[in-house]
Amino acid sequence: MEFALLILGMALVTYVTRYSMIVILGRWQVPRAVTLALTYVPMAAFAAIIAPDVLLRQGEIALVNARFVAGTAAILVAALTRHILLTIAVGMGTLWLVQAFLIH
């Protein structure tokens, strides 16, 4: 029973975070500055998710790190080819190669 309440509470607050802005911004005209600011959300969110995964190792910045090498390789391939599957293949391939032969 208590678990059911926990799930209900979690489901409710999660739904509120997802739905609230869709309703609010759907009903009222949004100032131009807000629309402009929102165009940067995806870029900022992607970068904010990627950077710690690539640069941090146990909470410390580590450049001698298989993930940093693999991430850099993926960024280069993405910039040069704009090809999603190729980027994933090179990123994961580099990670496995570096982990297997050089560093962890």
Partner: peptide, 14 residues
Amino acid sequence: FVLPVVFIAILIPQ
């Protein structure tokens, strides 16, 4: 590591 790599593949061209 698949997730950050997919995000790289989506982010960089943008």
